[in-house]
Nucleic acid binder design. Structure first.
Lengths: 196, 196
DNA sequence: AATATAAATGAATATTCATTCACTTATAAA
DNA sequence: TTTATAAGTGAATGAATATTCATTTATATT
């Protein structure tokens, strides 16, 4: 029998993400994706059941890969500040290496695909981070709060900073270029806000 | 001549926002909107040039209304903490009264409509807030930073808190209900992070 | 080398989409 | 009351969409 061309499969993944980032979910179409990959639309239906399956499967795979990258060198028993530092380090590195992936998730977060996708991805990541949160709250290093709120305080500034950087804004007439110093200054703000 | 039915016009606005919130921009269609309003599609093309015009016009109107609500009772010469307090108050009140409007903007932020829309809305709001930012930075109450970063630290937690509340999550098995105390505790975190 | 079979395809199909148009309806002005 | 005109409509239009299908192609197994 003929064997599946794995290069083609990963090209589809790559182009699907690129396409969603460029045109949004509202501009995404199976025919356009096939054309971008220079393959037949019908091939997409060999790889995936339908459009939803394609987008959600790809989102899950990307989510898992991202989750794994986030807990690299991460020890959930470590102090709050040190744990957060590793998280920022990992997130920042991942964002630089996978800008499309990050933008894809920002699109996903505010689309109707979000709810169908959210259920069961990043399992390992969620487990480890859950342990970390529990232990820092138990030790009284931070106050308990809804996870969403914690999340928005802890990471939104990092995402804003990198987005601002990559989109080529200018500040006070001069082109904005993020420095490591600025990154860790912002990190300090976040720690100051969260730490007891 | 026949007069335009303004009830119909505002129904269209209301349902368009509701539809985008429910199905996202990727699920929005002129035919579906007309059906939801129980009017002819052709009527939509009397009110608006085309689909883009409809969405962008509605976004601008909503944005201006929101902007005006944000600067109610707001004096840009006041102290950082007091200015922020009024902002939080106004935002919180607006979110409770206009939950669809807020969700609509969250969808918009990560859609391809964003760039075409962003240019010239909320003019008055931007002016007043700009004055406020300038004066608090000049007085050394906060450090200068990219506006996006400031924004994400200053308001993301509020949005997260309200979203978490309205989506009916539970925390530790019990249904989560946001209290005023919790709101202003979170506010304190934000002020602590930003203030010198 | 022959064969069985999954991969891959080009060309269809049916559906949904944005937009238009010939027509009817309501009303402000005459 | 008549009339001019903009509001409003139902039914089209053609383009884009998701999905299918009959067929061809490559290769693992025999």
């Amino acid at each position: 029998m003929r064997t599946r061309d794995e290069d083609k499969v990963s090209l589809v993944k790559k182009m699907a993400i690129k396409s969603v980032v460029k045109d949004g979910f509202e501009g995404f179409s199976m025919n356009k994706l096939a054309k971008a990959c220079e393959i037949s639309v019908a091939t997409l239906y060999i790889y995936y059941k339908d459009k939803d399956d394609l987008l959600i499967s790809i989102a899950k795979e990307e989510g898992d890969a991202m989750g794994d990258a986030m807990i690299k060198n991460f020890d959930p028993t470590v102090s709050f500040e040190e744990g957060m530092r590793v998280q920022w380090q990992n997130r920042y590195a991942y964002m630089l290496e996978n800008p499309y992936s990050i933008s894809f998730f920002e699109q996903l977060r505010n689309s109707t695909y979000q709810s169908r996708f959210l259920d069961n991805y990043m399992q390992k990541f969620k487990l480890v981070i859950g342990q970390f949160m529990d232990s820092v709250v138990k030790r009284g290093e931070i106050n308990p709060m809804p996870l969403e709120v914690f999340w928005s305080i802890a990471y939104a500034p990092l995402y804003a900073l990198v987005r601002f950087d990559t989109e080529g804004h200018s500040v006070g007439g001069r082109p904005f270029k993020m420095t490591d110093k600025m990154l860790w200054q912002t990190f300090d703000l976040v720690i100051k806000a969260l730490k007891n």
